[in-house]
């Protein structure tokens, strides 16, 4: 796709609306009584699932940008990342409210005793500063280098998200494995890339100005 500002905006709008659809569909199903036998479970599972899907998808945008030699994908990273956080917030709110009934004692016990809850909560806590510092102003305030370093935490958060998922399934680990594999590939690609780049820099074959 040729990158014009107009194309970018159209694509942005499509992704913006597209990412809203799962939430809109859940609302529709909630009001039409179409959430199945256990509506709370459906709501919690579906929002959690979309949070992981979008987190993993967001991590593929940088590799995609470089492999496709097209600057477009990476420009939707913030949008998709914030949507992932949006679904994480609904997911967490549902857990705290309907699932646990705001029983603080039970929630704290759950966080300390259940590894899957621990990992889920850690993923949320890691994503929180990333969401807060997602604005242009914050990038400027932190400086691009520090901002980038901070936002690498998204790999940790996504890994915790996948572990959270893996730990709660009873036997069918297909989806946690699929997300885990994609995540490992994205992380591996970035590590390999930074290693080879720094090796190239060490041998002086690449000027430091080219460092992405």
């Amino acid at each position: 796709m040729i990158v014009t500002e107009r194309n970018r905006r159209i694509l942005w709008l499509i992704i913006f609306i597209g990412c809203m659809l799962p939430a809109a569909d859940l609302l529709r199903r909630l009001f039409t009584g179409d959430l199945g036998a256990d509506p709370v479970e459906t709501l919690i599972r579906t929002t959690g699932d979309w949070a992981i899907k979008l987190l993993v998808a967001g991590l593929l945008l940088t590799p995609l940008t470089r492999i496709a030699r097209n600057p477009l994908p990476v420009r939707f990273r913030r949008l998709i990342g914030l949507y992932a956080f949006f679904y994480v917030c609904i997911h967490l709110t549902l857990y705290l409210s309907v699932d646990q009934g705001f029983d603080l004692h039970a929630i704290v016990k759950d966080i300390l005793k259940r590894p899957y809850i621990t990992f889920g909560m850690m993923a949320f806590l890691l994503l929180l500063p990333l969401a807060i510092t997602s604005t242009r102003k914050m990038v400027a305030r932190l400086g691009p280098k520090r901002w980038r370093q901070l936002h690498r935490a998204v790999y940790v958060a996504a890994s915790f998200g996948v572990i959270h998922y893996y730990l709660l399934v009873k036997a069918d680990i297909t989806w946690p494995l699929i997300y885990g594999t994609i995540l490992a590939a994205a992380l591996g690609w970035r590590l390999w890339n930074s290693l080879t780049l720094s090796a190239l820099q060490d041998t002086g074959r690449l000027s430091s100005g080219c460092k992405p």
């Binding site: 036998a37 509506p39 709370v40 309907v98 009934g101 039970a106 005793k113 259940r114 899957y116």
Partner: peptide, 19 residues
């Protein structure tokens, strides 16, 4: 006696919202 990964103290009756 909890399941090692989740609590068995409460349950959600199908049709209910709260445990």
């Amino acid at each position: 006696v909890d399941h090692p990964r989740w609590t068995q103290a409460k349950e959600r009756r199908i049709g209910d919202f709260f445990r």
